[in-house]
Design a protein around this nucleic acid. Structure first.
Lengths: 136, 136
DNA sequence: GTTCTTGCAAAATATTTGCAAGACG
DNA sequence: CGTCTTGCAAATATTTTGCAAGAAC
């Protein structure tokens, strides 16, 4: 059993070949990937299969969604073992010029407190601007 | 000249009747609205007109986009006069149950510092969880 | 054999553009 | 007149579902 398979099993997901492929792709990436990016990278899988795989991963809290600023949802592996808690989340930066998303895994997201009654499950902290490559 | 018209003029946008309608709708709302919500609320306008109006507003920094957690872009009036600066941004909460977005205009977004070279233009701080109404 | 998974096709949802007619200055 | 704006229609893009065949247990 490979490491990828172990991750799936530990999350309670049966490790099929498709799921292993999608998970590997997400693990190998340095930034969150969208459905269509995954489709381009894994051309052996149908997008509906990738979509359902992502849904499964989301249900089991193996990944969490990130929005990049244009309404496109990207997905990213959760760091804590099988958990997407607030404390687990890090800062992202979206470059408005090249449309790349950067992860700052070492910078945790600041958390504000809300009025009583709002229970926070997760969060999305996305800074937007121009990245070093696009700056001139 | 009404207040709405003044806002448009000051932003350098010609105050046509359509633009006044869209701006009023956004001003009256307590939460960010999506294109399709605006379409439902203003049934005299075609969605392409609303879309182009929003594009114009975005160009002139009269509104900024907010993502609600499902890849749907919502739009919100900028608070500072004709500016969408980081200091101008506030915290949002997305209820994963009723899919409503709440604005906490009195809670400013915390800002982390990034490595040299990243110039921050704006940001999106979205907390997600369950709102008081959906809590039981 | 019963449930889970997959691929194909197609529906549903959302965004964006082309174009011609009309409004505005 | 020349430019800006608008509505209609249609093209893109993106996400989601139905269904039947196949795989896994």
């Amino acid at each position: 059993m490979t490491a990828t398979e172990s991750i799936l099993s530990e999350s309670g997901i049966r490790p099929t070949s498709n799921r292993i492929l999608v998970l590997k792709e997400l693990l190998d990436s340095t930034r969150p990937l969208s459905l269509s990016e995954l489709e381009k990278n894994i051309h052996t899988l149908d997008k509906s299969s990738i979509f359902r795989t992502l849904s499964t991963f989301l249900e089991h809290h193996l990944i969490h969604p990130i929005e990049d600023g244009r309404g496109i949802v990207r997905y990213e592996i959760c760091h804590g073992t099988n958990s997407c808690t607030v404390n687990d989340m890090h800062v992202h930066f979206y470059c408005e010029s090249c449309h790349n998303v950067y992860c700052f895994e070492d910078i945790p997201t600041p958390i504000v407190s809300l009025p009583h009654g709002f229970s926070i499950h997760t969060l999305n902290y996305m800074l937007k601007g121009i990245c070093p490559k696009c700056e001139h």
